[in-house]
């Protein structure tokens, strides 16, 4: 009876996984399909035009991809640096106006940043930040910070402050405590927050487009025209690269954290 149940369970699991992976399989096939008219199950003709174009130096795809990864990495690092103290304060301390600060931080999740992007744009023009790399990094922080604060706040609520107190009474300064105790303990949370922030930043299209003014070109910006114009082969190639870049970055981030802090990838709860 039990065996049957577990078989049923795994069958359901496989169906769910299949349904999730199906779109991915389709874009992989599309990326090499020269023509794939409706009712045929498999493409009529196969070609490598998409991949050839992607790797052709004149398309600059790889340079833009690397540049985009670089930008999102910087956004991720800055977001984490800003949100660690913010999340800690929100999780552990009481201060006046805490509720308002919390609401303001979550605001970009409620009101899309696109809605205020025009205002930001005008402001950035005055400051000379529009059409610049820094401007784009700054505007990416807006949608990224809420996610990071949310995740890290939960982490700090779980870990609390006691480990840091212990470290301090053992003779560690505030800085030493942060480096040797706080960071390792929250590192699994940092990986989760970092991965999410990276993905959010990496997939920004409109904000980059508006603030970057076409000068700062990111991967979604070269990808979008293909998706819009209906060139499915090209769009699929770019989508696959997009997905695997994000996955690779997450993987690397986790590996680096593990190497530094020897953590097992789970949260420490006392």
């Amino acid at each position: 009876m039990k065996v049957k149940q577990s078989k049923l369970f795994s069958l359901i699991m496989y169906i769910i996984i299949f349904l999730l992976v199906l779109p991915l399989i389709i874009i992989i096939i599309w990326s090499v399909a020269k023509s794939w008219p409706w009712p045929s199950i498999f493409p009529n003709a196969i070609g490598l035009r998409g991949w050839k174009y992607f790797f052709k130096p004149t398309s600059k795809s790889i340079i833009i991809l690397l540049h985009s990864v670089y930008l999102s990495m910087i956004v991720t690092i800055i977001t984490l640096i800003i949100t660690i103290p913010a999340a800690k304060a929100l999780a552990l301390y009481n201060f006046k106006g805490k509720k308002i600060v919390e609401l303001l931080i979550i605001a970009p999740l409620i009101v899309s940043p696109v809605a205020v992007a025009m205002g930001i744009h005008l402001f950035f023009i005055k400051l000379g930040l529009s059409n610049t790399f820094i401007g784009v990094v700054l505007v990416h922080l807006v949608p990224c910070i809420p996610y990071s604060v949310k995740i890290l706040k939960n982490v700090f609520e779980i870990t609390g402050e006691s480990m840091e107190m212990q470290s301090r009474v053992l003779g560690a300064s505030k800085l030493q405590t942060f480096k040797h105790v706080t960071l390792p303990i929250i590192s699994p949370g940092l990986v989760s927050a970092g991965s999410l922030v990276f993905t959010v930043s990496f997939s920004q299209y409109f904000l980059t487009f508006l603030i970057g003014g076409g000068r700062v070109v990111t991967f979604p910006m070269v990808m979008f025209p293909f998706v819009q114009s209906g060139d499915r082969m090209m769009a699929s190639v770019y989508s696959i690269v997009f997905i695997f870049t994000t996955l690779a970055c997450m993987y690397i981030m986790e590996k680096i954290t593990k190497k530094y802090y020897k953590t097992e990838g789970y949260f420490y709860i006392n």
Partner: peptide, 20 residues
């Protein structure tokens, strides 16, 4: 004198060993 220089160590109830 700040905590780290005071030389008074607390052993807390739940030991608080550094898990890493």
């Amino acid at each position: 004198i700040p905590v780290e220089k005071r030389g008074a160590v607390i052993v807390f109830q739940d030991y608080l060993l550094f898990p890493h």
